[in-house]
Computed example of a mutant assay.
Amino acid sequence: MNEKEALILKLVKEDPFISLIDLAAKTDLSRSAVAGYISSLTKQGKILGRAYILPEKRQVLCVGGANVDRKIWSRGVLELGTSNPAESSKSCGGVARNIGENLGRLGNDVSVLTAVGDDHEGHWLMQYTKAFADVSPSETLKGHATGTYTAVLNHDGEMTVALAEMSIYDSITPEFIDRKWSYFASADFIMLDTNFPGEVLERIIDRCRKENIQLGITPVSSPKAKKLPQDLSGVTWLIANKEEAEALAGIDIRNEGDFFKAAEIIIHMGVEKVVISRGDKGLIYFTAKGEAGVLIPPAISIIDVTGAGDSLVAGIIYAHLNGIQTEDACKIGMACSILTLQSIETVNPVLNNEQLLDTYKQNFK
């Protein structure tokens, strides 16, 4: 931003309804020149639309999936090839949406950018999510069905298989992101999942790097992790599970050393901080500054694993935004994940700052 743009932005902040004539008089510029600067500031996301409306500051913008989660769990030992007695539930899901809800419950200023269908499921998702995050950046697309994710769990709560129908995200284009860029430019941190097409992910990563916007990425699955570009320069955090890390690093992870080898490869792709979760064995972290470590989780009773990875990400980003260093940020992420593992819901409805702090103290102090 140059001096003239900075001056115009200052004047607009003081009076969002100031006219071009008054702006021209106060800046010693022609009206056409002022209009040019206004156009530039709009493209940068510094102001929005007509009447020079200033963007509302959002601490975190979560970008990616918002789906209907359906869970079916066996009452007994799951037997393949035959009928199993089961119970089922339906809840709001989607990686980006889940992270946004977790962060919103923790008191962060959150917005969600996703796409849903013009159907009952899409309206329900947006209405529910409004309680925790601003959904105005999101889009309702006619002629598309809202994404769904169906998980089949065994009697211990472990996922046996999952089915995802998310073709709606294939309609998202780089131009769609460009039209929504004011929401990116006005955020302190972008949290991106990999539901959108590869060219869209690359556009977001590239623009965030050029505009020095903090960016975190969490892959949705190992196949979707492969959509990420090889150049991840400018990415602040990348948080993945074992299979996703294998897909990104291009190696098989067989032992603890391989976890760090994969993390180092991802660091060399340009990421500042890498976390690889290892299920009930905890996680490893590795940073471009040489920080590295292993965190082992406490033994707990698990009710349902769905959403635990998303809450881990949310806890880490929550800690990062509060200036907490890498190892403790990962511990807070694990504490957030513990709360989710002890709930049947994808996002634990009792999650708040106090619950998170209590869980952290009980398990990591």
Rank of each mutant, 00 (worst) to 15 (best):
Asn2Leu: 02
Glu5Gln: 11
Ala6Trp: 02
Ala6Gly: 11
Ala6Tyr: 12
Lys10Cys: 00
Asp15Ser: 13
Pro16Cys: 06
Leu20Tyr: 07
Arg31Met: 14
Ala33Phe: 03
Val34Lys: 03
Ser39Ile: 08
Thr42Phe: 02
Gln44Ser: 14
Gly45Pro: 11
Lys46Phe: 08
Gly49Tyr: 09
Tyr52Thr: 08
Val60Gln: 02
Val63Pro: 04
Gly64Glu: 06
Arg70Met: 13
Ile72Glu: 06
Trp73Val: 04
Trp73Tyr: 05
Ser74Ile: 01
Ser91Pro: 00
Cys92Ile: 10
Gly93Asn: 01
Gly94Ser: 07
Asn98Glu: 04
Leu103Ser: 03
Arg105Cys: 09
Asn108Trp: 03
Asn108Pro: 04
Asp109Asn: 15
Ser111Arg: 03
Thr114Val: 11
Gly122Thr: 06
Phe132Lys: 11
Asp134Val: 03
Glu139Gln: 11
Thr140Leu: 05
Leu141Trp: 13
Lys142Phe: 04
Ala145Cys: 04
Gly147Arg: 09
Thr148Asn: 07
Thr150Pro: 07
Asp156Asn: 15
Leu163Phe: 02
Glu165Tyr: 13
Tyr169Arg: 00
Asp170Lys: 15
Phe176Ala: 10
Phe176Thr: 13
Ile177Ala: 05
Asp178Gln: 11
Asp178Ile: 06
Arg179Pro: 00
Lys180Ile: 01
Ala185Phe: 11
Asn195Glu: 01
Asn195Leu: 12
Phe196Leu: 13
Pro197Arg: 06
Val200Ser: 13
Glu211His: 10
Thr218Ser: 14
Val220Glu: 08
Ser221Val: 13
Lys226Pro: 01
Lys227Trp: 01
Ser233Arg: 14
Asn241Phe: 03
Ala247His: 14
Ala249Met: 07
Ile253Phe: 07
Ile253Asn: 02
Arg254Glu: 12
Asn255Trp: 10
Asn255Asp: 15
Asp258His: 14
Ile265Gln: 05
Lys273Leu: 10
Ser277Cys: 12
Ser277Ala: 10
Ala288Met: 13
Leu295Lys: 10
Pro297Phe: 07
Pro298Gly: 14
Ile302Met: 03
Thr306Ala: 02
Gly309Ala: 08
Gly309Pro: 04
Asp310Ala: 07
Leu312His: 12
Val313Lys: 02
Val313Met: 01
His320Gly: 00
His320Cys: 05
Leu321Cys: 11
Asn322Leu: 10
Ala329Asn: 06
Gly333Trp: 01
Met334Tyr: 05
Ile338Arg: 04
Thr340Gln: 14
Ile344Leu: 07
Glu345Ala: 09
Thr346His: 00
Asn348Thr: 08
Leu351Met: 15
Leu351Gln: 10
Tyr360Trp: 15
